[in-house]
Structures are given as C-alpha cells and as structure tokens.
C-alpha cells in the first residue's frame, strides 16, 4: 500500500467516524434544538472528507478524471444550512420544547410573535 492509499484510508475512516458521531449526537443529545447540531455539521464534514478521499482515489490511484463527487459536496454544503434553518423554524412554530437548562428561553416566543398571521 502506497503513501497516497494510506491518506485515502485515513480520510475514509475519518469521514465515517464523523458521520457516525453525527448520528450518535442525534440519539444522545437531550432536545430537538441541540440534536440539530449533530447532523448539520459533523455529518456534512464527514461527507466532505469522504468526497475528498474519493476524489484522490479516482484521480490519482485509478488515474481517470472524475470530478463528479465535487458536485455532491458542493450541493450538500449549500443545502445543509438551509435544511437546518427550515427545521428550526418548524420546531419553533410547533413549540417543540427546549431542555430546561437552555439559556434565554424567552427568545423562542419572540419568533412566533413576529410572524404575520
């Protein structure tokens, strides 16, 4: 196994671990708003790492030009914050409760008042 293949292996493992951590966060954290942090960041970064690995693998190990994966990473990095934003909005609208340790809980009502009926 060459040095480049080790780098690829490392990136793949790192990506998989980040994806797993995102899923663990989803199960482990106490309320909806904290759970949101796992998938939007850890999972997106994990996918970025996996895409980087597959870019290296196809272009340098297999020696064929393949940049399509780049599009997946680009798309995900653009859509992840939008999805998170929509989910928070939906959560606030449905009055999903935050864990009692949350600071400034009164701000949650603020967004509801501002919305036009």
């Amino acid at each position: 196994m060459t040095g480049l293949e080790w780098v690829i292996a490392l990136l793949v493992l790192l990506g998989a671990i980040f994806v797993l951590i995102g899923s663990v966060a989803l199960v482990k954290l106490p309320d909806f708003y904290t759970r949101l942090h796992g998938p939007t960041k850890a999972t997106t970064l994990g996918l970025g790492s996996l895409v980087l690995a597959s870019l290296l693998f196809f272009n340098f190990v297999l020696d064929e030009l393949s940049l399509q994966q780049l599009l997946i990473a680009l798309f995900l990095f653009i859509t992840a914050p939008v999805t998170a934003y929509m989910l928070v909005k939906a959560g606030l609208h449905r009055n999903v409760d935050a864990v009692s340790a949350t600071k400034n809980k009164h701000l949650m009502q603020l967004s509801e008042k501002q919305r036009p009926k």
């Binding site: 708003y33 939007t40 850890a42 998170a84 934003y85 928070v88 967004s111 501002q114």
Partner: peptide, 10 residues
C-alpha cells in the same frame, strides 16, 4: 449554521 456550535434560527 455551518460553523459548529451555532445554528441560525431566524
């Protein structure tokens, strides 16, 4: 939203 620790809500 993308930088960890914070999610913009509104």
């Amino acid at each position: 939203s993308l930088t960890p620790g914070t999610v913009s809500a509104e």
